[in-house]
Protein backbone atom coordinates (compact mmCIF):
# COMPACT_ATOMS: atom_id res chain seq x y z
CA UNK A 1 0.00 0.00 0.00
CA UNK A 2 3.01 2.28 0.57
CA UNK A 3 6.07 2.06 -1.61
CA UNK A 4 8.96 4.45 -1.11
CA UNK A 5 11.79 4.16 -3.61
CA UNK A 6 15.24 5.72 -3.50
CA UNK A 7 13.91 8.74 -1.59
CA UNK A 8 16.09 11.81 -1.13
CA UNK A 9 14.49 14.56 0.92
CA UNK A 10 15.65 17.78 2.51
CA UNK A 11 14.54 20.51 4.84
CA UNK A 12 15.93 24.08 4.74
CA UNK A 13 18.60 22.93 2.30
CA UNK A 14 19.79 20.06 4.53
CA UNK A 15 19.71 16.63 2.95
CA UNK A 16 18.14 14.31 5.53
CA UNK A 17 16.92 11.26 3.64
CA UNK A 18 19.48 9.78 1.28
CA UNK A 19 18.13 6.91 -0.74
CA UNK A 20 15.46 5.48 1.53
CA UNK A 21 13.45 2.43 0.45
CA UNK A 22 10.40 1.17 2.32
CA UNK A 23 7.55 -1.06 1.27
CA UNK A 24 4.51 -1.57 3.48
CA UNK A 25 1.60 -3.90 2.75
CA UNK A 26 -1.92 -3.94 4.18
CA UNK A 27 -2.11 -5.74 7.51
CA UNK A 28 1.54 -5.12 8.40
CA UNK A 29 3.04 -3.22 11.29
CA UNK A 30 6.50 -1.87 10.63
CA UNK A 31 8.76 -0.41 13.28
CA UNK A 32 11.38 2.15 12.31
CA UNK A 33 14.11 2.54 14.84
CA UNK A 34 17.29 4.53 14.79
CA UNK A 35 19.50 6.86 16.74
CA UNK A 36 18.62 10.56 17.06
CA UNK A 37 19.12 12.57 13.90
CA UNK A 38 18.89 9.60 11.55
CA UNK A 39 15.85 11.00 9.72
CA UNK A 40 12.95 9.22 11.47
CA UNK A 41 10.81 12.32 11.96
CA UNK A 42 11.64 13.60 8.49
CA UNK A 43 10.30 10.37 7.05
CA UNK A 44 7.00 10.84 8.91
CA UNK A 45 6.66 14.46 7.76
CA UNK A 46 7.47 13.58 4.16
CA UNK A 47 4.82 10.87 4.10
CA UNK A 48 2.25 13.26 5.57
CA UNK A 49 3.24 16.04 3.15
CA UNK A 50 4.79 18.78 5.29
CA UNK A 51 5.33 21.78 2.98
CA UNK A 52 8.77 22.62 4.41
CA UNK A 53 10.20 19.24 3.43
CA UNK A 54 11.11 18.68 -0.19
CA UNK A 55 11.43 15.48 -2.15
CA UNK A 56 14.60 15.85 -4.20
CA UNK A 57 14.65 12.45 -5.84
CA UNK A 58 12.78 9.14 -5.78
CA UNK A 59 9.10 8.48 -5.28
CA UNK A 60 6.48 7.92 -2.62
CA UNK A 61 3.67 5.77 -3.91
CA UNK A 62 0.45 5.15 -2.02
CA UNK A 63 -2.43 2.98 -3.09
CA UNK A 64 -5.45 5.05 -4.04
CA UNK A 65 -8.52 3.34 -5.49
CA UNK A 66 -6.50 0.22 -6.12
CA UNK A 67 -3.73 1.99 -8.05
CA UNK A 68 -0.28 2.93 -6.77
CA UNK A 69 -0.09 6.71 -7.09
CA UNK A 70 2.89 9.00 -6.57
CA UNK A 71 1.78 11.35 -3.79
CA UNK A 72 4.98 13.41 -3.52
CA UNK A 73 3.22 16.55 -4.78
CA UNK A 74 -0.12 15.94 -3.13
CA UNK A 75 -1.47 18.39 -0.48
CA UNK A 76 -1.40 16.99 3.07
CA UNK A 77 -5.18 17.32 3.47
CA UNK A 78 -5.82 15.23 0.38
CA UNK A 79 -3.38 12.56 1.58
CA UNK A 80 -5.30 12.48 4.87
CA UNK A 81 -8.63 12.14 3.09
CA UNK A 82 -7.14 9.27 1.09
CA UNK A 83 -6.23 7.45 4.29
CA UNK A 84 -2.80 8.58 5.52
CA UNK A 85 -2.56 9.56 9.16
CA UNK A 86 0.36 10.97 11.12
CA UNK A 87 0.39 10.83 14.91
CA UNK A 88 2.66 13.75 15.82
CA UNK A 89 5.61 13.49 18.14
CA UNK A 90 4.76 17.00 19.32
CA UNK A 91 1.02 17.54 18.86
CA UNK A 92 0.24 21.14 18.00
CA UNK A 93 -1.86 23.37 20.28
CA UNK A 94 -4.68 25.25 18.60
CA UNK A 95 -6.08 27.86 20.98
CA UNK A 96 -9.73 28.79 20.57
CA UNK A 97 -10.73 25.69 18.57
CA UNK A 98 -12.70 23.21 20.70
CA UNK A 99 -11.49 19.61 20.40
CA UNK A 100 -15.00 18.34 19.65
CA UNK A 101 -15.46 20.78 16.79
CA UNK A 102 -12.02 19.98 15.38
CA UNK A 103 -12.62 16.23 15.47
CA UNK A 104 -16.02 16.55 13.86
CA UNK A 105 -14.72 18.83 11.07
CA UNK A 106 -11.99 16.33 10.46
CA UNK A 107 -14.38 13.36 10.40
CA UNK A 108 -16.76 15.20 8.07
CA UNK A 109 -13.97 16.21 5.68
CA UNK A 110 -13.20 12.51 5.18
CA UNK A 111 -16.86 11.51 5.03
CA UNK A 112 -17.57 14.09 2.31
CA UNK A 113 -14.57 12.91 0.31
CA UNK A 114 -15.78 9.31 0.39
CA UNK A 115 -19.42 10.17 -0.27
CA UNK A 116 -20.55 9.16 3.23
CA UNK A 117 -23.02 10.94 5.48
CA UNK A 118 -21.64 13.77 7.62
CA UNK A 119 -22.37 13.87 11.34
CA UNK A 120 -24.01 16.73 13.20
CA UNK A 121 -22.97 17.46 16.79
CA UNK A 122 -25.76 15.27 18.17
CA UNK A 123 -24.62 12.20 16.25
CA UNK A 124 -20.98 12.90 16.81
CA UNK A 125 -21.11 13.26 20.57
CA UNK A 126 -21.87 9.59 21.46
CA UNK A 127 -19.52 8.44 18.67
CA UNK A 128 -16.57 10.35 20.10
CA UNK A 129 -17.31 9.52 23.74
CA UNK A 130 -17.27 5.82 22.90
CA UNK A 131 -13.81 6.19 21.38
CA UNK A 132 -12.55 8.22 24.32
CA UNK A 133 -13.50 5.36 26.66
CA UNK A 134 -11.13 3.00 24.85
CA UNK A 135 -8.30 5.47 25.50
CA UNK A 136 -9.47 6.13 29.06
CA UNK A 137 -9.59 9.85 28.30
CA UNK A 138 -11.41 12.17 30.63
CA UNK A 139 -14.46 13.63 28.88
CA UNK A 140 -13.50 17.14 29.97
CA UNK A 141 -10.87 17.25 27.23
CA UNK A 142 -13.54 17.26 24.53
CA UNK A 143 -14.59 20.78 25.51
CA UNK A 144 -11.07 22.19 25.71
CA UNK A 145 -9.24 23.82 22.85
CA UNK A 146 -7.19 21.34 20.80
CA UNK A 147 -4.21 20.20 22.91
CA UNK A 148 -4.34 23.37 25.04
CA UNK A 149 -3.98 22.56 28.76
CA UNK A 150 -3.52 18.87 27.93
CA UNK A 151 -0.73 17.04 29.73
CA UNK A 152 1.96 15.42 27.57
CA UNK A 153 0.25 12.05 27.97
CA UNK A 154 -3.18 13.44 27.12
CA UNK A 155 -1.81 15.00 23.95
CA UNK A 156 -0.55 11.59 22.84
CA UNK A 157 -3.89 9.97 23.67
CA UNK A 158 -5.57 12.73 21.69
CA UNK A 159 -3.46 11.76 18.66
CA UNK A 160 -4.66 8.16 18.90
CA UNK A 161 -8.22 9.41 19.43
CA UNK A 162 -7.93 11.28 16.12
CA UNK A 163 -6.62 8.10 14.54
CA UNK A 164 -9.67 6.24 15.86
CA UNK A 165 -11.99 8.91 14.45
CA UNK A 166 -10.38 8.91 10.99
CA UNK A 167 -9.74 5.17 10.77
CA UNK A 168 -6.80 5.54 8.34
CA UNK A 169 -5.47 2.86 6.01
CA UNK A 170 -1.91 3.90 6.80
CA UNK A 171 -0.96 5.31 10.19
CA UNK A 172 2.50 6.67 10.91
CA UNK A 173 3.13 6.98 14.65
CA UNK A 174 6.03 9.32 15.28
CA UNK A 175 7.61 8.64 18.70
CA UNK A 176 4.19 8.15 20.24
CA UNK A 177 5.89 6.68 23.31
CA UNK A 178 8.05 9.72 24.06
CA UNK A 179 7.00 11.43 27.27
CA UNK A 180 4.64 8.62 28.29
CA UNK A 181 4.83 6.72 31.55
CA UNK A 182 4.36 2.96 31.38
CA UNK A 183 0.66 3.02 32.31
CA UNK A 184 -0.16 5.65 29.70
CA UNK A 185 1.88 3.79 27.14
CA UNK A 186 -0.14 0.61 27.75
CA UNK A 187 -3.38 2.51 27.26
CA UNK A 188 -2.15 4.20 24.09
CA UNK A 189 -0.83 0.89 22.74
CA UNK A 190 -4.15 -0.76 23.51
CA UNK A 191 -5.90 2.05 21.60
CA UNK A 192 -3.63 1.42 18.64
CA UNK A 193 -4.04 -2.38 18.77
CA UNK A 194 -7.83 -2.06 18.73
CA UNK A 195 -7.47 -0.24 15.40
CA UNK A 196 -5.19 -2.85 13.88
CA UNK A 197 -6.88 -4.82 11.06
CA UNK A 198 -5.95 -6.81 7.97
CA UNK A 199 -6.94 -3.84 5.85
CA UNK A 200 -4.70 -1.19 7.34
CA UNK A 201 -1.02 -0.77 8.00
CA UNK A 202 1.06 1.03 10.59
CA UNK A 203 4.54 2.47 10.67
CA UNK A 204 5.71 2.89 14.25
CA UNK A 205 8.68 5.21 14.62
CA UNK A 206 10.48 4.87 17.91
CA UNK A 207 13.81 5.42 19.51
CA UNK A 208 13.31 2.73 22.15
CA UNK A 209 12.16 -0.83 22.04
CA UNK A 210 9.73 -0.59 24.98
CA UNK A 211 6.70 0.54 22.91
CA UNK A 212 7.21 -2.54 20.73
CA UNK A 213 6.48 -4.75 23.74
CA UNK A 214 2.92 -3.48 23.45
CA UNK A 215 2.55 -2.80 19.73
CA UNK A 216 4.10 -5.90 18.20
CA UNK A 217 5.70 -5.22 14.83
CA UNK A 218 5.97 -7.70 11.96
CA UNK A 219 9.05 -6.05 10.52
CA UNK A 220 11.73 -3.89 12.14
CA UNK A 221 13.94 -1.45 10.22
CA UNK A 222 16.93 0.53 11.36
CA UNK A 223 17.24 4.00 9.86
CA UNK A 224 20.67 5.59 9.94
CA UNK A 225 21.99 8.65 8.11
CA UNK A 226 18.90 8.85 5.95
CA UNK A 227 18.78 5.23 4.78
CA UNK A 228 17.41 1.91 6.00
CA UNK A 229 20.53 -0.03 6.92
CA UNK A 230 18.92 -3.17 8.32
CA UNK A 231 15.57 -4.93 8.06
CA UNK A 232 14.59 -8.00 10.08
CA UNK A 233 11.86 -9.51 12.25
CA UNK A 234 10.80 -8.39 15.74
CA UNK A 235 13.94 -9.95 17.25
CA UNK A 236 15.95 -7.02 15.85
CA UNK A 237 14.24 -4.62 18.26
CA UNK A 238 15.27 -6.81 21.19
CA UNK A 239 18.86 -6.95 19.97
CA UNK A 240 18.91 -3.15 19.79
CA UNK A 241 17.47 -2.95 23.29
CA UNK A 242 20.34 -5.10 24.49
CA UNK A 243 23.25 -3.89 22.39
CA UNK A 244 22.30 -0.39 21.24
CA UNK A 245 22.92 0.79 17.68
CA UNK A 246 26.72 0.76 17.53
CA UNK A 247 27.08 -2.83 16.24
CA UNK A 248 24.79 -1.95 13.31
CA UNK A 249 26.55 1.26 12.41
CA UNK A 250 30.14 0.03 12.58
Amino acid sequence: MLNIKDLYASVDGHQILKGLDLSVKAGEVHAIMGPNGSGKSTLSKIVAGHPQYTVDRGSIEFEINGAMTNIAAMEPDLRAREGIFLAFQYPVEIPGVPTSEFLRSSYNALARHHGLAEMDPLDFDPFIREKMKVLEMDEKYIDRAVNVDFSGGEKKRNEILQMAVLNPRLAVLDETDSGLDVDSMKIVAHGVNVLRTKRNAMVVITHYQRLLNYIKPDIVHVLYQGRIIKTAGPELALQIEEKGYDWLIA
Binding site: D77, R79, F88
Partner: peptide, 19 residues
Amino acid sequence: QLFYLQTRGIDKAAAGEML
Protein backbone atom coordinates in the same frame (compact mmCIF):
# COMPACT_ATOMS: atom_id res chain seq x y z
CA GLN B 1 -1.02 24.72 13.06
CA LEU B 2 -2.10 24.79 9.41
CA PHE B 3 -0.20 21.60 8.67
CA TYR B 4 -1.66 19.87 11.71
CA LEU B 5 -5.22 20.63 10.62
CA GLN B 6 -4.43 19.60 7.05
CA THR B 7 -3.09 16.24 8.17
CA ARG B 8 -6.56 15.70 9.61
CA GLY B 9 -8.15 16.06 6.18
CA ILE B 10 -9.22 19.68 6.54
CA ASP B 11 -8.39 21.67 3.39
CA LYS B 12 -6.16 24.71 3.60
CA ALA B 13 -8.92 27.32 3.25
CA ALA B 14 -11.09 25.71 5.91
CA ALA B 15 -8.06 25.23 8.17
CA GLY B 16 -7.18 28.92 7.81
CA GLU B 17 -10.70 29.92 8.71
CA MET B 18 -10.60 27.61 11.71
CA LEU B 19 -7.36 29.19 12.91
